[in-house]
Design a protein around this nucleic acid. Structure first.
Lengths: 342, 342
DNA sequence: TATGCAGATGCAAACGTGTACAATAATCAG
DNA sequence: CTGATTATTGTACACGTTTGCATCTGCATA
């Protein structure tokens, strides 16, 4: 039937344009290839015919004999989380500006899905895969490399040869958080973290606890639930319900911090910063909201992305681990300093 | 130099696998093509060799002579906005489950970028483009169709032949919002909306105002800023600062509603629902947070996506406009009914 | 006029895969 | 054992590009 033919032939090819413009097929290709040699007259004819016929270069086909596909894979879980969403928004924006195309691969759920994601990326001959959550099997990474793909791990610092590992200096931030709480005069200091936390989130906890040990102060640790607002509510409730109620809490995530603040306000009638000092991490949009006004750490998103793009566009990039300082953002969820700096 | 060769030849091809397994190249192709005829012995050999060599079918190449690329474009602006992010998370998840691959195109900024986005989608022979914000030029849409691409417009109901237009029934929701405020006994009713609102958001406003006129009540209209929390803060401040301070506000967006509630609480010491009733729209995650506990409308996300996928996988789908009811979500930002239902 | 040169164009061969068709091997009924 | 049927494999071409090489044109230089 004719339907079969139409569903087969419906694409406009370079040859159609060539025939319409009365030039050879290669001239069409050259017209759309920057730096190729075509006369102005030919180019004009081609462009006009292409416009009329609605022709667009088939990048699937052109990727075949060019070495670059122009596609970059973004692998991430829980992409509706504020910080993750902001990261993806920025990354896709910048990739686009750099002439790349982003393929989004959602890996929420099983950890196994990172593997499937990378296999998919390989299938589409992605130039690079930027992994925002989780980490691949080393052998799988090798398969990526052997197919000419670059690998970026954000927020992972494990030893992973051949890739770029980049993220904030989580330990240093944890340390800074403790100092800030001490300087605010907090006497009973606590930490609220999720039991299902990412590697990088656990690093923040470690940095915080290490600094506490160094300073010789006890820290009340409450670890439970997921990295979510709801977990924050519960963690906050558990902490504030104690007899030795803490007066300073470091939350490993802004979402948790928001939950803790709401628990304090709605369930205990406590206010930040007067009754309770709270510090978060990520600087999500809600941290700026008037109801929270959260003192927190801003992820060095811009610098991370800068480095990402630069590394990915390098010809033969070498393995690299980059730790960038997270900027401490002073707002109003922590008591003004009572203890003077020495 | 050898580097040039390696950067050229580094991809593992079906032919390499064939040679390694001692079979013909087509047998490799058939092994990875569901339903093709290969003997178990051959398939086993091929799979083993493929595993060893790290071979993956090049989908760019296979898309050339199959008619389907498996790629679906997601076109959206401001993808770090809570509702948008949730939508993208769900969509990418479901597309993946349906065996599709999602290409994310960020169109924040100029309206013109929707055009570039679609041109890019055509270049990659995307099977469909799902547009979450903005609308394309009709002539451009035709180019899409002539290249065999399907078009879905979410949250647009303009007449757009050849595409699926789907979204919540915004007018009906506006109407429901007004009734709810009246039933709560509100005397001075207001509407808070952004001056840069989307088409669908304006529909909510129209529905609300139409219902008000029908009921013979005056509505205080405050329209300014962007569709953001900050705009909500300012709109709320402006409204609550008036002599005839409103006691019921419909916000066309949850983000605006959160801003209004915070303005009430932080700047005027007013609480919902006692001093003020507030209704939002979108049912973003923050609406559920204890500090807001916002009564709002849930977008029929699941049904929208169901319909999307079904329509996109239909062979020759016909133009269709679908309006789905938005579910009213009762929480605690609106006074309990003082006026009995009649 | 002959020589060289640069720009424009065409031919043919890739890129890596899927599939119609023909050819071969295996199976089975008689 | 023969012919018919089926399962498997191989050959050749198609998909829509880009690109190396060769050709051709026009033009300035010696």
């Amino acid at each position: 039937m004719s339907e079969k033919v139409s569903s087969r032939k419906q694409q406009v090819r370079a040859e159609d344009v060539a025939r319409h413009a009365g030039v050879s097929r290669v001239s069409v290709s050259r017209t759309f290839t920057p730096g190729a040699s075509v006369s102005d007259a030919t180019r004009a004819k081609v462009l006009k015919s292409a416009e009329i016929l609605g022709y667009r270069v088939n990048r699937l086909a052109s990727s075949l004999n060019r070495s670059e596909s122009g596609i970059v894979a973004l692998v991430a879980a829980e992409i509706d989380t504020p910080h993750r969403a902001a990261m993806i928004a920025e990354l896709s924006e910048r990739l686009q500006a750099a002439g790349k195309v982003t393929m989004l691969i959602n890996t929420s759920g099983y950890e196994e899905r990172v593997k499937d994601a990378l296999l998919q990326a390989i299938s589409f001959r992605t130039e690079a895969a930027i992994i925002l959550s989780g980490a691949p099997d080393p052998s799988l990474a090798d398969t990526c490399f052997s197919n000419g793909m670059k690998l970026v791990l954000i927020n992972r610092e494990e030893d992973f040869p051949g890739s770029l590992q980049i993220g904030p200096d989580n330990r240093a931030a944890g340390k800074t958080a403790l100092k800030a709480l001490l300087r605010a005069g907090c006497k009973r200091i606590a930490l609220a973290n999720s039991a299902n936390a990412t590697w990088s989130i656990v690093e923040r906890q470690k940095g915080f606890l290490a600094a506490a040990e160094e300073a010789g102060v006890d820290v009340l640790c409450e670890v439970d639930g997921f990295t979510s607002y709801q977990a924050g509510l519960e963690l906050g409730t558990a902490l504030l319900d104690r007899e030795d109620r803490p007066d300073g809490i470091f939350c490993t995530t802004d979402l948790i911090a928001c939950g803790v603040i709401d628990a304090a306000r709605q369930r205990f009638g406590l206010r930040t910063p007067d009754d309770l000092s709270v510090i978060g991490f990520d600087n999500i949009q809600q941290a700026e909201w008037e109801g929270y006004d959260l003192t927190t750490f801003a992820q060095p998103t811009d610098q991370i992305i800068d480095k990402c793009l630069e590394w990915c566009t390098t010809e033969q990039p070498s393995s690299e681990t980059v730790k960038l300082p997270a900027k401490f953002v002073w707002r109003n969820s922590v008591q003004k300093a009572r203890v003077p700096m020495k």
